[in-house]
Write a protein that binds this DNA or RNA. Sequence first.
DNA 1: GCCAACGTTGGC
DNA 2: GCCAACGTTGGC
Length: 148
Amino acid sequence: MKSEPDEVSIDNLVRARRQTLPWTGVRNYQARNFMRDQMQPGDGVLFYHSCCAEPGVAGLAHIFGRAVPDTTQFDVDSAYFDPKSTHDKPRWLQIDVKLERKTRLLGLPEMRSVPELASMRVLQRGNRLSITPVSHDEWLAVLARLDR
DNA sequence: GCCAACGTTGGC
DNA sequence: GCCAACGTTGGC
């Protein structure tokens, strides 16, 4: 799951109450559908910092609970307000993410150097999805690399 | 349903 | 700040 650290960083998650944050602001249907259809409570999450000086995996987390309507879509004061969404038919979803641990930064150049991560979705050219699946092998490769 | 225009993302 | 890439929008 990608986030701009200026918006929400791994340190925000470390300091959050119960070390849990609602993942709000996803405004892409494919990413929303991952939350709705694919993500299960307990699923592992790689917390990835994007759009910053040092992009890369900054921590590990897991999914807590199920996807529910994103509260920010109804908040007129939010940058994520969506006037076309209704309470009856909410368009966007959020899901709780709970910290596992902050890790050392596994930076993008290092990730690109790992053969097992060559086809990782988040690293593909042109990928703009803020939520992308991670295969079991990719997960293991990231964990192994973090232990170095 | 097509497709050009536009806005956003994200690495550098 | 630049630029490539992509998703969304809206006219037709």
